[in-house]
């Protein structure tokens, strides 16, 4: 009888103890979130950034200097070498160039970056010697058509007779050295 009574009281004690403990722990969790309800302290402010909001949302220049946004190619400095086209893992750059008015001038007719496949890894920017391809901090690249996602920086195809004219110009430039 004694043994039975003792174990009942112990079981009753641990039963009540678990009730009190769990209710205190639940209440503790509630009151631990109280500072958030009453906005106490700087660290408990809301952190939502209303994106399309003109006032609070981040614009391109809030981003840190190195952030890799949409690409931009300064066509004057670009030599049309095609390094970036080769190194790009996603294969989304397409370069086509022709000899220009004289040997040092290159006419980069096509330079397309297909942002539907570009993954902004930054390898093309690193490999570009003339530093013409750079990351802007623009990140709003959405478009309605898949074709609009292709950004083209090329100067456009050259017409047939324009090419002929350049060809003659180059010969004239290189011919006098032999003549003289």
């Amino acid at each position: 009888m004694m043994y039975f009574r003792r174990s009942v009281f112990i079981a009753l004690f641990w039963y009540l103890h678990s009730i009190v403990k769990s209710s205190l722990s639940i209440a503790g969790s509630c009151f631990a979130t109280l500072p958030y309800l009453l906005r106490i302290g700087e660290s408990r402010k809301e952190v939502t950034d209303g994106y399309p909001d003109p006032i609070s949302s981040k614009t391109a220049d809030d981003l840190p200097p190195r952030s890799r946004g949409l690409l931009f190619n300064d066509i004057e400095r670009c030599t049309g070498c095609g390094d970036c086209e080769h190194v790009c893992p996603a294969g989304c750059i397409e370069v086509a160039s022709e000899p220009g008015a004289h040997d040092s001038r290159i006419w980069v007719s096509v330079f397309d970056v297909d942002f539907s496949r570009c993954v902004f890894c930054g390898l093309c920017v690193d490999i570009c010697q003339p530093m013409s391809l750079v990351h802007t901090r623009q990140y709003e690249g959405a478009a309605y058509q898949l074709e609009d996602l292709v950004a083209s920086f090329g100067r456009g195809q050259v017409t047939e007779e324009q090419r002929e004219k350049w060809h003659l110009a180059r010969q004239r430039l290189s011919a006098p050295q032999e003549g003289a």
Binding site: L63, P64, R66, S67, R68, V119, F120, C121, G122, L123, D126, H135
Partner: peptide, 21 residues
């Protein structure tokens, strides 16, 4: 991550022989 490497998730910051920046 964005401050140091320029991207938040796919950093692409390590190079053979060191770091990019």
């Amino acid at each position: 991550f964005e401050l140091l490497t320029g991207a938040r998730v796919s950093l692409n910051f390590l190079r053979y022989g060191g770091v990019k920046g």
